[in-house]
C-alpha cells in the first residue's frame, strides 16, 4: 500500500498493515497524532486497509 506522509510529503510503501492502527504503528505514530485519509474520507483506527490502496497520513502536531 502506498502512503503519502504529510507535512513532509514523503511516500512510503507498507504491505504488512491490515488496519489503520497497524499502519500507524508501522509509522511509529499514535492514533491521536495523525489523520488517516482514504479517498477524501477519515478513517478510525479499527478500519481495514488493503494492499492496493493509496492512503494519506497527515501528522497533526503544529510547530510555530
Amino acid at each position: 500500500m502506498q502512503i503519502l506522509i504529510e507535512p513532509e510529503n514523503q511516500w512510503a510503501t507498507i504491505d504488512k498493515a491490515t488496519t489503520v492502527l497497524n499502519l500507524l504503528k508501522e509509522l511509529e505514530l499514535r492514533p491521536n497524532q495523525a489523520l488517516v485519509i482514504r479517498d477524501g474520507e477519515l478513517l478510525t483506527p479499527d478500519r481495514k486497509v488493503g494492499p492496493q490502496e493509496n492512503i494519506t497520513v497527515r501528522k497533526i502536531a503544529s510547530r510555530g
Partner: peptide, 24 residues
C-alpha cells in the same frame, strides 16, 4: 485537542496550512 481541531478543519473543508514554521 490538536487532533480534534485537525479533524474539525478537515471535515469542515477548511484549506489550512499544515507545513511547520521553518524556524521552529
Amino acid at each position: 485537542s490538536e487532533f480534534e481541531t485537525a479533524n474539525y478543519s478537515f471535515l469542515a473543508k477548511i484549506d489550512y496550512c499544515y507545513a511547520p514554521c521553518p524556524y521552529s
